[in-house]
Nucleic acid binder design. Structure first.
Lengths: 195, 195, 195, 195
DNA sequence: TATGAATGAGCCTTCATTCAT
DNA sequence: TATGAATGAAGGCTCATTCAT
């Protein structure tokens, strides 16, 4: 990594929690200056403009979340355990995975009507998130852990929606009581598909 | 209603879709000027500042959505029909109920970390939304439509989360394919509780 | 006094300390609204504009001060006592006579380069203030209290200047230590002219 | 001096007469823009806000006056001559030393009740101004020019007050007739203390 | 006489961006 | 690559004033 690439990456990492917390519109380049302690001019050496930086940061935030989820999931081998690990990951998402909440929801709601580029990025990640759930279940069916006739594609969508809805609730509530219910419900739905 | 109250209400109505679509931070008072064709000074006759206006508009948007949902629900008497009407209401929410998407999600995600007043407002409405679902089911149990041992309080939370997650998906996707799955799943869950 | 004249006078009285404390430029019509609890329109019924009101208030403040000084002076008959009462009046002027300090100095410094009308008003009162001192001394000479060859016209100017300079010092200092020195000095100068 | 420091100083110099003439409240940043021909944004590169600029300008104006007075005083060596030079300096102050009049009086009267920071600054300079007079006299006493028992500390205060009062009079009057009287009186008071 | 809604110019300040060094 | 001075449009807001009621 050249010096330039390093600085660029540094800017992205420092900007990520700010954009995710305040939103793109409410984040000023001066916020990035303060967080990186870089000069105004320096920022523009690495990014054409705020929109450019925001796009990279959106990717970074979503990727960071995906990596953390996968890390957790991959610490298990049994498909059921992997699925449960996925659900449990969001149990305390009020505080942990990425500062500022779920980037899909944050940037998705901000961009849906106003920023086609970011809207498309978020859509891709929403789809691949459901894909991850599907992949786990497919493996489970191949391993004989889950029933072969499970309509798991629909479940993947339902599970993803429930988790996102849960994230909204717990972030606005400030506690995760309702996410526990969602977690329990999802696990029960999975248990019914065990062979 | 005095002239002033009329103007104030007019400003709120014209501002509502703008705030809901662009977000609070990205909405400028000049946007409101353009939408209302009122002068800058006139806006400040009726609202102390942008934050004050935003707070009223957030309430208005959430209330508007709630009223539309209730109107739909109340066109039915049978608890099952009422519940199904609730779910169906969001089937095409990509376009209809309130311009710009679900205000609970839009303002909730924008405000969760940055605006305590609005966060609390959204939290109240999220809770009462689940309360509406609970009320319908309670009536259904009293009427003997639903099983008495249904853990309906948890279902209300699950249903709410699924619908919100679904709204995120369809707004980012630009189509409601996934909401159909959610709708179907919710209805199946209800059917299992019929007496 | 008609109702209108009463209201007009009421506005002036309530505005006086505000203008004298904050200055004309820094006083907003909304400050007057708050102080009088009158509506915006009502203010403009009684005064053409802010400048008009300010001019009347400047007069009022200076007249109020003059009256208070004269009241104090007139509680004595002997010329020396009258002069000393005049000097003593300003000993604690840090707090008392008119809220906000000496209006001649306040409005004089604000208006000297920018408001010809007010500048002229202040100039008149500055002159008549020295006239008051001259009048007292003339009476004292007639009464045989003061030496007939006293160059009292110059003394009147010197005394006035010293008092105004003293007011500046004590208002900026927040205490009247230096005014005591000025007071003592003035009295000594008078004592030398006693017959 | 870096480019930035140069510009900052340039802004201060151009702003100084404007603030001193119109007052802080009545001076708009657009006035500074016009006087410096700098852009609005550029002003805020060098000063956090108007208050910050005003504080620096107040210092600059008072320092400028002090320097000019000291230059005049220092062109003499004999204590009596130095004192007379000090008094003469203000004889034509209606036009000369600093555009807009005495900054101690201008900013002192504007700030006394409303701006603690500036009030304190002015107070410091008022005190050191009297200190200058005291220093001259102390030297004169050491040199045997003035009587050793002169209560010169009180005189310093009296002289300062008389000059400030005189400045008020001549600025409001538009001519310096009264300052001539004050000048003459001060010189006579000094003459009485010659050995 | 009194009200308060309406106005638009102007206020201070922040913004994203550019560019010479 | 990095700096920070410079820009000017745009931001939220306040101002003095007008006018229909």
């Amino acid at each position: 990594m050249t010096k330039g690439e390093e600085t660029r990456q540094f800017i992205v990492e420092r900007s990520a929690p700010i954009f995710n917390t305040k939103g793109i519109a409410a984040t000023a380049m001066s916020d990035i200056m303060a967080a990186t302690k870089l000069s105004k001019g320096s920022l523009y050496v690495h990014f054409e403009n705020k929109e450019d930086l925001a796009a990279v940061v959106v990717d970074y935030n979503m990727q960071l979340l995906a990596e953390k989820v996968l890390d957790t999931v991959n610490s298990h081998t049994n498909a059921k355990d992997r699925l449960f690990a996925y659900f449990d990951f969001f149990l305390d998402s009020q505080h942990s995975p990425v500062v500022g909440g779920c980037p899909m929801m944050n940037f998705g709601t901000e961009a849906d009507d106003t920023n086609e580029l970011i809207r498309a990025k978020v859509n891709d990640v929403i789809n691949s998130s459901q894909g991850i759930i599907r992949d786990i279940i497919e493996q489970g069916i191949r391993d004989g852990v889950f029933k072969a006739d499970w309509n798991y594609k629909e479940f993947a969508t339902v599970a993803f929606a429930m988790l996102e809805g849960g994230i909204l609730i717990i972030r606005v509530a400030g506690h995760n009581a309702k996410m526990k219910i969602i977690n329990k419900t999802l696990k029960e739905m999975v248990m019914q598909q065990l062979t």
